[in-house]
């Protein structure tokens, strides 16, 4: 006992989990989807991801170091996650400068201006994505074709984009159905779309890993996908001529990506299981409303951001079940 003893209040043992481990597990969970995107979009996908990650980490470091004048916490892994998620949300051939701008909005505006990790109200990657979507609608909705698809086309539309555009042009649904990819293509990810959203299967794989490692709980994804299924199912059941099947809605667009990786962001989702169910159902219903009645083909980003805003309210009113509380 050469040194003086340490005194601290109990408990004196600590779980070996840490913020960094959680973040790296999220990164690990995103790897299958990333690998798939490289497979279908080629090295462009890797380029976009690397630029987004590098930009997010650089902005985080520079702003914390020189503007906020605090010790940079860039090694906690949260900027890495934000970068990958941002990349997952953009087309693989997005110009680098648009990506860097998106990273700036995500890290500087959505995260650090609120006080950094843990204090932000909205999911940083989604704020970055929505900012880009509104500012650069053309670049953000022009998707490159997958390598496996026809070689004569240079751009491909997402399944949801096809439908929305068709309906706006007054085409009947059954005519449009023929242009849609098959369910198995959508499950695998042989469709047009942003980097991370194409393969529902790979995203589910990552989700299962995170569930196993207890990074996320089942509440949010199940509530989102379940409510989308039910909501879409009701419309399909009432009028199958005018509406698509609920399974199509689950597999198309960013539903999986949003439900598994974006909405489950710890910082911006409610604390209790019950709260997460309310939050998830809110996201599912808003998403379907935008998809079915809005002018955008896809609405999960908006839905998540809207429900992020409700999270403090949900936290204030949905309390865990107290031990010995009167029923």
């Amino acid at each position: 006992m050469s040194n003086v003893l340490t005194i601290s209040p109990s408990p004196h043992v600590h779980t070996d989990d840490s913020v960094r481990k959680i973040m790296y597990r999220v990164v690990l969970a995103m790897l299958p989807a990333l690998a798939w995107s490289v497979f279908v979009f080629g090295l462009d996908a890797l380029r976009v991801t690397l630029i987004a990650v590098a930009a997010c980490m650089a902005f985080e470091y520079l702003i914390q170091r020189f503007v906020m004048k605090v010790t940079p916490s860039v090694n906690d892994g949260s900027a890495l996650v934000t970068g990958i998620l941002l990349a997952f949300n953009v087309p693989a051939d997005l110009p680098w400068w648009i990506l860097v701008l998106g990273a700036f909005v995500a890290v500087a505006v959505a995260k650090l201006s609120f006080g950094g990790l843990g204090s932000n109200i909205f999911n940083p990657a989604l704020v970055g994505r929505v900012f880009l979507l509104i500012s650069f609608p053309v670049q953000m909705t022009t998707w490159p074709v997958t390598k496996q698809a026809a070689v004569d086309a240079t751009t491909a539309a997402t399944p949801l984009g096809l439908i929305k555009e068709g309906i706006l042009n007054g085409k009947p649904l059954n005519e449009l159905m023929g242009t849609l990819p098959s369910t198995s293509d959508m499950l695998l990810g042989n469709i047009g779309g942003s980097l991370g959203e194409v393969s529902a299967l790979m995203l589910l794989l990552g989700g299962l890993y995170m569930l196993w490692k207890k990074v996320i709980t089942w509440h949010t994804p199940v509530a989102i996908l379940g409510s989308m299924f039910v909501f879409g199912g009701i419309f399909w059941f009432v009028d199958p001529e005018a509406y698509l099947t609920p399974v199509f809605h689950l597999l198309a667009g960013g539903a999986m990506l949003g439900a598994i990786f974006m909405a489950t962001d710890m910082v911006t989702s409610p604390m209790t299981g019950k709260g997460q169910l309310i939050y998830g159902v809110g996201i599912g219903v808003i998403t379907m409303c935008i998809r079915l009645f809005g002018s955008y083909p896809e609405g999960i980003s908006f839905a998540i951001l809207i429900m992020n805003g409700f999270t403090p309210l949900i936290n204030a009113y949905v309390k865990p079940k107290r031990f010995g509380g009167q029923k």
Partner: peptide
Amino acid sequence: PKTSNFDGA
């Protein structure tokens, strides 16, 4: 002189 190290909040 210090005889212990406090390591709490």
